[in-house]
Each structure stands twice: as structure tokens, then as C-alpha cells.
Deep mutational scan, measured.
Amino acid sequence: GIQEIVAMSPELDTYSITKRVKEVLTDNNLGQRLFGESILGLTQGSVSDLLSRPKPWHKLSLKGREPFVRMQLWLNDPHNVEKLRDMKK
């Protein structure tokens, strides 16, 4: 599951990941809330907090790293936007 992926993950640049996620969401007119609930399993508040103030990787616990790994996996998925759009319906 995701825990193994997080444990094996190389250090991620949390700042550039969140910046990229925000760009993709904005460009495709997708909400942070939808993204947070569907992709990260987080509430709106947690998501906007994460996206606006990402902590550096080395300061995060494994649990804290999980959303960033999920974001990275989502960014790597060529169908990420379509999938999210489908969830919106």
C-alpha cells in the first residue's frame, strides 16, 4: 500500500510538488476540495493548509509525507485530470 511507497520514497521537493498541483488544478478548473477528498483523503482545511504551507520533507513524519507522495503519484499519472473530472460528476 501507500505506506510502503512512502517508506521507500526518495526525498521529495514538497514546495515544487504543491506548486505544480495548484497549477494543474487551476489550469483545469478543478477545486482543492475535490482533489483533497478524492486523491489525498483529506478535508478541505487540511488540503489548503498543505498546499499553501508545505513543510520541508526532512521535517515530516512518514504520515506527514504521505500526502506529498500521493500528490507526486497523481502528477505522474497522465490521466490524472480526466479521473478527477469524472469524480466531480
Rank of each mutant, 00 (worst) to 15 (best):
P67R: 05
L25K: 02
L42G: 05
E66R: 05
L40M: 06
E37I: 11
S16V: 12
H79I: 05
G45A: 14
G1V: 08
F68H: 01
N80M: 05
E4S: 11
W74V: 01
K19Q: 10
L51H: 03
L62G: 08
S46F: 07
N28M: 04
T26I: 12
G36V: 07
P78Q: 07
D13L: 02
K89R: 08
P10V: 07
G36T: 06
G1A: 06
N29P: 04
V69N: 03
R33W: 06
V81I: 11
V6Y: 06
E4Q: 12
K89V: 10
R53L: 05
L34E: 13
T18Q: 04
N76R: 10
G36L: 11
Y15E: 09
M8H: 09
V21N: 03
S9P: 07
Q72R: 10
S61K: 04
R85Q: 12
T43D: 14
L40W: 04
L30W: 02
S9L: 06
S61D: 09
E11F: 05
G41S: 08
V24L: 13
I17F: 03
G36P: 00
R20I: 04
R33D: 12
K88M: 06
R70D: 05
P10Y: 07
N76D: 15
T26Q: 13
L84W: 03
K89M: 15
N28K: 08
L12R: 04
G64V: 05
L73R: 10
S38L: 12
L60C: 05
E11S: 08
S52M: 13
D86Q: 08
V21E: 03
S46A: 13
L25Q: 00
T26F: 10
Q32N: 10
T26N: 14
R20F: 04
F35H: 00
N76F: 04
K88F: 05
R33P: 09
P56H: 15
T26E: 09
R70S: 05
G1T: 07
D77S: 05
L40P: 03
L73D: 08
S52A: 10
W57C: 02
S48W: 13
R53P: 04
V47L: 14
L75Q: 00
K55F: 06
N28A: 12
S16N: 15
L50I: 09
L51K: 00
S16I: 13
E4R: 08
G36I: 12
Q3W: 05
I39M: 00
F68Y: 15
Q3F: 05
R70G: 00
M8G: 14
P78E: 10
K89A: 10
I2V: 08
K22D: 04
G36N: 08
K83S: 09
L34A: 09
Q32I: 15
E4F: 05
E23H: 12
E11I: 05
P78S: 08
D27Q: 12
H58W: 10
T43Q: 12
P67Y: 05
P67Q: 15
E23C: 06
K83N: 12
S52H: 09
G31T: 13
A7E: 13
K88C: 05
S38N: 15
D86H: 12
L60A: 00
